[in-house]
Measured scan of single mutants.
Amino acid sequence: MIVFVRFNSSHGFPVEVDSDTSIFQLKEVVAKRQGVPADQLRVIFAGKELRNDWTVQNCDLDQQSIVHIVQRPWRKGQEMNATGGDDPRNAAGGCEREPQSLTRVDLSSSVLPGDSVGLAVILHTDSRKDSPPAGSPAGRSIYNSFYVYCKGPCQRVQPGKLRVQCSTCRQATLTLTQGPSCWDDVLIPNRMSGECQSPHCPGTSAEFFFKCGAHPTSDKETSVALHLIATNSRNITCITCTDVRSPVLVFQCNSRHVICLDCFHLYCVTRLNDRQFVHDPQLGYSLPCVAGCPNSLIKELHHFRILGEEQYNRYQQYGAEECVLQMGGVLCPRPGCGAGLLPEPDQRKVTCEGGNGLGCGFAFCRECKEAYHEGECSAVFEASGTTTQAYRVDERAAEQARWEAASKETIKKTTKPCPRCHVPVEKNGGCMHMKCPQPQCRLEWCWNCGCEWNRVCMGDHWFDV
């Protein structure tokens, strides 16, 4: 396979590697080409510095992935760790964990309700045991953590790749202090920090972006993250068709209702045909949960890209028209025109101005929308079919299609509260000796007794199943 190397943020060049090629071997190839010592090179990928003893497969490097290699003399205490030698983080029983690669970060837990604080980093599902597709590297999971809308060759929703760059020099040479644990960490600028490894760059702020994971991409090709779309790892039924499908869209209502993408497309087109989208002054033209839940309008309007190009163009047109109407304007009634106009409040005669090729020149009556006339309008008909009709959803289907309910059931079956801080902690095999993952707590306690870890627990039921 081919990976592209950008040395000291210059133009990239291809390097041929195998899945079992080590990072140090990659350094040696680059060092020979650039005429520099291999031990002064640092390989940066997806916000993480890659260790010498890791392989291309370990690092989730795919065909035509772009890695950054910078030349920086080692500072005291760094060289041993980078070589894969006596790194205290690798000691058996050590409590410190390697910062998780962005290629394996899962933010789907952050669609849980606000009262489930902490689960994004504490609760991990076991539903990723799908067998890898044919042709994928051994052991590589097909679980997708992110979804994007690819405006490039795909023109559809695709699995996405999370990447990070330095907000100062805009190069992907920043190593994160810690990985993101929720969508806010990724979507809110300057929320996460790190250290830029580019020479002479003092940058410390992280800037995240997404790429389409279905095809090789260049540095400049980015895609918009659709953070309401998630892999259906909890096997929730769709609120409309009641099938279990994946991926799904999880509405931001209190129940976190789930809808499959085909039904979401149908829901949007139906509402669009009836012009029953909601115009929100802050958000724009949007839709609420299909069950009509309060405070559930979709905030990231790129989710409506699921409509496809033709329907999305209609959505944008109707949204612009609705904006004009909300501002007190009118639409030209001549067939084939429909231009938005903003006449004076007491102006009865409205002319669709033909300047700049935008208007048709038609003069019409503001009251009856017919060709302009003197005197009273002959008839004014009330528009028919403008009443909002509820999208029919079966109550039982709505009850079963809740992301929140599956989460709470998982928590109930696989977790116990920490005796000190009461945060839910998952036990997935292993011994009875637990350690609270909350940095402010870190209590060592017994899963069996529910009390602080002691010699009695150690001698009596340390390794009970």
Rank of each mutant, 00 (worst) to 15 (best):
V3F: 05
V5T: 03
F7P: 02
H11F: 04
F13I: 07
F13E: 04
P14W: 03
V15Y: 03
V15S: 00
E16A: 06
D18V: 05
S19K: 10
S22E: 06
S22L: 05
Q25C: 05
K27N: 01
E28L: 05
E28K: 07
V29L: 15
A31T: 03
R33L: 06
G35Q: 07
V36F: 04
V36L: 08
A38Y: 03
L41W: 01
V43E: 01
F45H: 13
F45E: 02
A46I: 02
K48T: 05
L50I: 02
L50G: 01
R51E: 11
R51C: 09
D53K: 04
D53G: 05
Q57H: 07
N58I: 05
C59S: 07
D62Y: 09
Q63W: 07
Q64R: 15
Q64W: 08
Q64H: 15
Q64Y: 13
Q64G: 13
S65C: 08
S65D: 08
H68I: 02
I69D: 01
V70P: 00
R72K: 14
W74F: 13
R75S: 13
Q78W: 14
E79Y: 09
A82H: 07
T83V: 14
G84N: 10
G84P: 13
G84M: 12
G84W: 12
G85V: 11
G85W: 10
D86N: 12
D86I: 12
D87Y: 10
R89F: 13
N90E: 13
A91C: 07
A91N: 13
A91P: 13
A91F: 11
G93S: 13
E96S: 11
E96V: 10
E98D: 11
E98G: 12
P99D: 15
L102I: 12
V105C: 15
D106M: 06
D106R: 07
L107A: 14
V111R: 11
D115N: 10
G118L: 03
L119N: 15
A120D: 15
V121D: 15
V121I: 08
L123K: 15
L123N: 13
L123E: 15
T125S: 12
D126T: 08
D126P: 10
R128L: 12
D130F: 09
S131T: 12
P132W: 09
P133M: 11
A134C: 09
A138E: 13
A138N: 11
R140I: 09
R140G: 12
R140Q: 10
S141G: 12
Y143K: 09
Y143L: 14
N144F: 06
N144Y: 07
S145R: 07
S145P: 05
S145M: 06
S145A: 13
F146D: 01
Y149Q: 02
C150F: 01
K151W: 15
P153N: 10
C154S: 01
C154E: 01
C154A: 01
Q155N: 13
R156S: 15
V157N: 02
Q158L: 07
K161D: 04
R163F: 15
V164M: 13
Q165C: 09
Q165T: 13
R170E: 08
R170I: 03
Q171Y: 05
Q171F: 05
L174I: 14
L174P: 05
L174S: 04
L174Q: 03
T177S: 14
Q178E: 13
G179H: 10
G179D: 13
P180D: 02
P180H: 01
C182P: 00
W183M: 03
W183C: 01
D184P: 06
P189M: 05
P189T: 06
N190D: 11
R191C: 06
M192L: 13
E195L: 09
C196N: 00
C196Q: 00
Q197Y: 08
H200E: 15
C201K: 02
P202R: 11
E207C: 06
E207S: 07
E207I: 05
F209Q: 14
F209W: 09
F209H: 11
F209P: 02
C212N: 01
C212D: 01
G213D: 08
T217A: 13
T217Y: 09
S218W: 07
S218H: 12
D219E: 11
K220G: 13
E221H: 10
T222H: 11
S223M: 07
S223P: 10
A225I: 08
A225K: 02
L226W: 00
L228N: 08
I229M: 10
A230D: 01
T231M: 07
N232Q: 01
R234K: 14
I236W: 02
C238W: 01
C238P: 01
I239R: 00
T240K: 08
T240Q: 15
V244Y: 05
V244I: 13
R245V: 08
R245E: 04
S246L: 01
P247F: 03
V248D: 00
L249G: 01
L249Q: 00
V250Y: 02
F251T: 02
F251S: 02
C253G: 01
N254R: 09
S255F: 09
R256H: 09
L261D: 01
D262R: 04
D262N: 04
C263Y: 00
C263Q: 00
C263K: 00
F264P: 00
Y267F: 06
L272F: 02
R275G: 02
H279G: 08
D280T: 11
P281Q: 07
G284L: 02
S286H: 01
P288C: 05
P288T: 07
L297Y: 05
E300F: 05
L301S: 08
H302L: 08
L307H: 02
E309N: 15
Y315T: 12
Q316G: 07
Y318S: 02
G319Q: 08
G319N: 09
G319S: 10
A320N: 13
V324D: 04
Q326M: 10
Q326V: 06
M327Y: 08
G329N: 03
G329V: 03
L331P: 03
C332H: 03
C332N: 03
P333L: 02
P335I: 09
G336T: 07
G336N: 11
G338S: 13
G338L: 05
P343K: 07
D346A: 12
Q347S: 10
V350M: 08
V350C: 07
C352R: 02
C352D: 03
C352G: 02
G354K: 08
G355V: 11
N356E: 09
L358Y: 14
G359L: 06
C360G: 03
C360L: 02
G361Q: 07
G361R: 07
G361C: 05
F362E: 05
A363N: 15
A363G: 08
F364M: 05
C368I: 02
K369G: 11
E370V: 05
E370S: 07
Y372P: 11
H373E: 02
E374T: 06
E374C: 05
E374D: 09
G375D: 14
C377R: 02
A379D: 12
A379V: 12
F381T: 08
F381I: 07
A383K: 13
A383T: 12
S384Q: 08
T387L: 12
T387A: 11
Q389T: 15
Q389L: 15
Q389I: 14
Q389H: 14
Y391D: 05
V393I: 13
D394K: 06
R396Q: 11
A397F: 10
A398Q: 14
A398K: 15
A398D: 08
E399C: 08
E399T: 12
Q400P: 05
A401P: 02
R402L: 05
R402K: 13
W403F: 07
W403N: 03
E404P: 13
A405Y: 12
A405C: 12
A406H: 12
S407M: 09
K408E: 13
E409N: 11
E409M: 09
T410K: 09
K412D: 11
K413N: 13
K413L: 12
T415R: 10
T415A: 10
C418K: 01
C418Q: 02
P419H: 03
R420W: 08
R420Y: 15
V425A: 15
V425M: 12
N428P: 14
G429M: 10
G429D: 15
G430V: 04
C431R: 06
C431K: 05
C431Q: 06
M432P: 01
M434Q: 06
M434L: 06
K435Q: 05
C436N: 01
C436K: 01
P437D: 07
Q440W: 08
C441L: 00
R442E: 08
R442T: 15
R442C: 09
R442V: 05
R442H: 15
E444Y: 05
W445R: 01
C446M: 01
C446D: 00
W447F: 08
W453Y: 00
W453V: 03
V456R: 15
V456S: 15
G459P: 02
D460M: 08
H461M: 01
H461S: 00
H461E: 00
H461N: 01
F463S: 00
